[in-house]
Structure formats: C-alpha cells, structure tokens
Design a protein around this nucleic acid. Structure first.
Lengths: 228, 228
DNA sequence: ATCGGCAGGATTGTCGACAATCAGACTAAA
DNA sequence: TTTAGTCTGATTGTCGACAATCCTGCCGAT
C-alpha cells in the first residue's frame, strides 16, 4: 500500500529511515529542531554512515533541510508552504486522474470500486471515525496515482510529497467531519474514471483536493490564532 | 543561473557530483551502464563516502537507478519515459506560468523582456545556431519557474527533472530549426505574463512544450529507425 | 544436455577514527 | 559599553578497513 520508501527494510539505513520518518511525521522530533548525527547514531546504535543515508532520503521528501557543514533541521510547518504544497498537489493529482482514466485496466478500476464499497460498509459501522485520515483516503489516492502509469509522476507524489502531506495532517490533527463527504467525492471520481472521462475526473479531483485544502487551512489558521 | 545542484561546490562530494552529472548528461558514461563505486573512487581520487553521497543525489535527478546490494546503473533513454517526462513538464511549467503571472514583480518581468530582446539581437547575428539548446531557452524557463515562487515546484523542475531533460536534448543532438519559432513563443508567453493573464500564459506554455516534445520525439523515432 | 547447488571473487553496506569546518564564549581594544 | 578578534569545543565531511551480500562460473546430479 505504500511507496518505495517502505520496501522491506533490508538495510540498516532503511530501518533507521522508517523510524525517523515516523518520528518526524508524528512530531516526536519537533519541527525546526536540529538533527544531531552523533546523538541519533548513539540512539539507534549504528554508525553515522547509514544514518546519513537516511537523512539524505528525508531531505528528498522535504522533511529535512540540510546546509553544508551546518547539519540538518526538521522542516517547519507554515501556511505558505501548505498552500504551495496543495497548489502542486491539485495539479499533479488532477493529471494523475486524467492519465488514469485512459491507462487503468478495467480490472484495476473494478478493484477500486469494490474497495470503496467495502470501506463504505465497514465505515457505516464505526461511524465517521477515521476513514479520512486512515488507509482509506490514502489508498484511494495512491491507487489512482499508480494508475497514471507515469513513473515520474508516481515518484514525485508517493515518494516526495506524500510524507510531507501526512505530516501536516497528523500534526494538525485532521480527522474531522470531512469523512463522509470525502467518500462521496471519491465515488464520483472513480465513476468518472470508469467512464473513461479523464477531463471530468481531473476536475473532480481538483475540487476534492481544494476542499481538503480549505479544511486543513482552516484548521491551521485556527491554531495560529489561539496562541503559538 | 542554475539549480541548487550547482552551488559553488564547497565539498568534495559536490565536485564529483558536478563532474559525474556532466559526464552522464553528455553520454560519456553510457546509458544503462553499471556504476562501479571502487572504480570511480579511484578515478576521482577520493574515498567512497563522498562518492556515494553524489550517487544518491544523482538518483534523485532520475539519472541513476540504484537497487540495494546491487549498485547503480545509468538510466536508459526511451520513448515511453520521454513521453512521461514531457507530460509532467507540460503540467508543471503550465502551472508555473499561471503562478508567475500573479507572483512575479514588475521588475522581474521587465528584466525578462529585456533579456529576450538582448537574445534576439545577439541572435540575429550568428543566425539560428544555439539559442534553443543554449542558455537562452533554459534561462527563460528557469526564470519563469522561479517566478512561480512555489518552492516545491521550483525544486522539482530545477533540481529533479531539469538534468534529465538536458540529457535527452544533448544525447539526441537537439539544436534543430526550432530556434526562431521557440523565440517567438517565448515572446508571447512573457507578454501574457506581463498582462497578468495566467490562463493564457499557461496555455501558451503547454503548447510551447508540446511542440518541443513533438520535435524531440520525432528525432528519437528517427534514431530508433536507423538502427540501434 | 540441462538444471540445481556450491564455492570464489567482487561489490555494496557499515564501522570507527581523523581532518576540516563552523558556532559560541571569552578577551581585549576602541 | 560595544565590537572585533581569537580560541575552544563540537559537528560535519572524509578516509581506509571490515563484514555482509550478491553475481559468476564450475561442478555434479538427474
């Protein structure tokens, strides 16, 4: 269900990467804080070589910022960056939809429809809890992205921007009431793809993401007002 | 004039990166060939640590493909990948235009117009030689991308996709007759931006890139027919 | 003859130590 | 008191060697 960053973790660098990724996304390592290589090396009980490899990959996901001879810092979350991120996402996932409408196989499309129905039933039970935040939403977007069959697009969305978006969601506590609405929007998008209507799927996806952006933007401005 | 990859090369890893980048883009290291870390380390007379750092960054630009415990290979050029690359580029640079139309300062726009006129005059002299391939075209696109003021978009286009596009151009020998046409298209785009007409700039840029794609696509299919 | 397993060699991943560089405190002069 | 300079401590960049893994060719069995 997840990007190349989460291959079976064959190497030590992979393991520390996954752990650091989790910790940063979860906010356990504070945004803006400096990364000390010696400290982390000691903490994970390995040398600095695989650690630096992991840091390089985190920089690639825009979760770290490194400056030569000065080390790495965890990125800070800001309204400007969130806006930039979503501008890009609207464009890229819109493109993914357009491509998916012509590239996905009938089998892949049917599978997605089944998956949505399945989510729906298991969802109506424990009402509106975590569909949006959980696997559901992510998996939906992930499959469409893969469906585009464009390797560069896939790489950018799933390897480079994905974790940063998750970081915003998690740290802003997004599990709000957008659940059921998001579900309907997903349904409409997959229908457009099933009808091979790329233009419509594109449009719907852009709206879907724009709505999500307004939602999270609202949350962020809320937090900025009440202190911090 | 160029991406973060070409900072003053303060570190040894930076230097070997620049040299490798040049060699790969120029085709001196054959596409598809395997990268031997010990060999390159000896050749550049440094240890494997900074070399691996450089390889990691080259992977980031999609110029290398690394598989765990198996090393790195230079990417192969293919029609499919070229198409995927240009699909993405049309979308992203279109977005860049739309954003630039609202984000660039009047001074920045005027500077670009002056630059184009300057290119025009110095161009008419040694007629239609290298405007398209040279600094002219690249600089034009580069400035618009920066003008978008979207850091993620800038990073993707100038750090990750830029060198790969250059690789296609250089290795396919693109210095063809598109020179003067490209110039007129550039002029039209910057005019749209000056008029703050983002929609039009977007459309023109997409056409401009699509034309460029057809041009390079034609060249590639030519080469594929006559052997190889 | 073909296929599967088994060394041998080479390559990648990792380690600990050294060198180069940077941040911050302290001193001294204006 | 402020500011420039220096020195110290710590951090990053680099090195050479070791360990783990993979690819190649060979051998034997079917």
């Amino acid at each position: 269900m997840n990007p190349a960053l989460q291959r079976p973790a064959v190497t030590a660098a992979d393991r520390v990467l996954q752990e650091l990724l989790r910790a940063i996304v979860a906010g356990e390592i504070a945004p803006g804080s400096k990364i000390s290589e010696p400290e982390l090396a000691k903490r994970f009980d390995l040398s600095r070589a695989p650690l630096r490899e992991a840091l390089a990959r985190l920089e690639r996901c825009h979760l770290l910022e490194r400056t030569p001879n000065a080390g790495a810092r965890v990125v800070k979350l800001s309204t400007e960056n969130l806006l930039s991120l979503y501008q890009l996402r609207e464009e890229l996932e819109g493109l993914a939809c357009r491509l998916a409408a012509s590239q996905m196989s009938d089998a892949e499309i049917r599978e997605m429809q089944d998956l949505l129905d399945q989510h729906l039933s298991s969802q109506r039970v424990r009402e509106g809890e975590s569909y949006y935040q959980e696997a559901g939403d992510l998996d939906f977007h992930y499959r469409i992205i893969l469906g585009s069959k464009n390797p560069y697009l896939i790489n950018i969305l799933t390897d480079e921007l994905y974790h940063l978006m998750r970081m915003y969601r998690v740290q802003l506590g997004m599990n709000g009431p957008r659940v059921s609405r998001a579900f309907d929007e997903h349904k409409a998008i997959i229908n457009a793809i099933a009808n091979r209507d790329g233009e419509l799927a594109d449009l719907l996806m852009r709206r879907h993401i724009a709505a999500s952006r307004r939602n999270i933007e609202h949350k962020l401005s809320e937090l900025e007002q009440q202190g911090n």
